[in-house]
Design a protein around this nucleic acid. Structure first.
Lengths: 107, 107
DNA sequence: TTATTATATTGCAATATTACGATATTAAAA
DNA sequence: TTTTAATATCGTAATATTGCAATATAATAA
């Protein structure tokens, strides 16, 4: 069948999982790290930097945008991507809430 | 082509992504939450609780074990799964390190 | 206007994931 | 020993993801 049965889970569970899923690819981790290492917004040095085709990078950027982690701004004929710090902190908090709540009492 | 090009990323990036990936499914989030809500180690009430086939649950448990988050102990003819608290905290720290390091200076 | 350059989108092939029925496997119970 | 119950593994169908070439789009440069 292959379809994730989202209907049987809570919205919170689906959202959390979706967020983890987007971060669950090394290219997307690398993109976030690279953007954060630049002092200014970078554009698509990413293609050269990461070593994947332009179409592939564009796709990964789209997924990062889909959970609100990246903001893209048009700058002439190129795009300036940067991290959405508010969303970033929000997700980190959400994630820590999950980790802290999910504590085991057994074994 | 469909293969993730792990060779072009660092081990740290691959490990982090792998960890996120495993948590990136609502069933696995739900499993962890359910286990943590029980005062004692639970076994496979999970099948009834979550609403997926036994084979599917078993598969998800295997993935959670693969990153060290779960420990399984034989208990008669059933299995007692519980969260590996040390690993849990370790992953939470790793994750926070990633979030804290990856801070944007731009926009 | 016609390049040129940067990025996004489309279409597709290769591979991975999800889910489940069927079938082991293992341990207690009868 | 045979049955029963709990879990794991195998095989497979449906779907999703990854990656790229080709193409579209949009903005500046010539």
């Amino acid at each position: 069948m292959g379809i994730t049965k989202t209907q049987i889970f809570t919205e919170q569970q689906n959202d959390l999982a979706q967020f983890f899923k987007v971060l669950g690819h090394p290219a997307r981790v690398a993109i976030l790290q690279y953007i954060s290492n630049q002092n200014a917004c970078i554009c698509n040095d990413l293609v050269e930097e990461i070593g994947l085709a332009q179409a592939t990078i564009s796709q990964h950027l789209k997924e990062l945008k889909s959970i609100g982690l990246l903001i893209g701004e048009v700058e002439g004929k190129s795009m300036c991507y940067c991290i959405n710090v508010n969303r970033w902190v929000e997700l980190q908090n959400q994630l820590n809430a999950f980790f802290n709540k999910t504590k085991s009492n057994c074994c």
